[in-house]
């Protein structure tokens, strides 16, 4: 079991888990999102290879209306 903090919320997942698998489990596949892992950008193209680890802090963002 690996515990991740995603957008400030703690979530537990069965490991091992890649960024691409996480996106799918969060039902975000096909959406335009950007991912930051422990303060570093994870390029979308590398999601299938990016192995997440226990304790990772992730930010997943989208574009919304704003001034």
């Amino acid at each position: 079991m690996i515990a991740l903090t995603i957008n400030g919320e703690r979530r537990d997942f069965e490991g091992p888990l890649t960024a691409a698998e996480l996106i799918e489990r969060l039902q975000l596949s096909g959406k335009r999102v950007a991912l930051e892992r422990n303060g570093q950008i994870v390029p979308r193209g590398t999601f299938p290879h990016e192995r997440l680890a226990h304790g990772d802090r992730l930010e997943i963002v989208v574009a919304v209306g704003g001034g």
Binding site: G8, L28, K31, V62, V64
Partner: peptide, 19 residues
Amino acid sequence: TVAIRRTNIGQNANEPSLL
């Protein structure tokens, strides 16, 4: 201009997108 915000995670998969 657009803002960048945390997406909801799984609660509402069909939310419309600004894009």
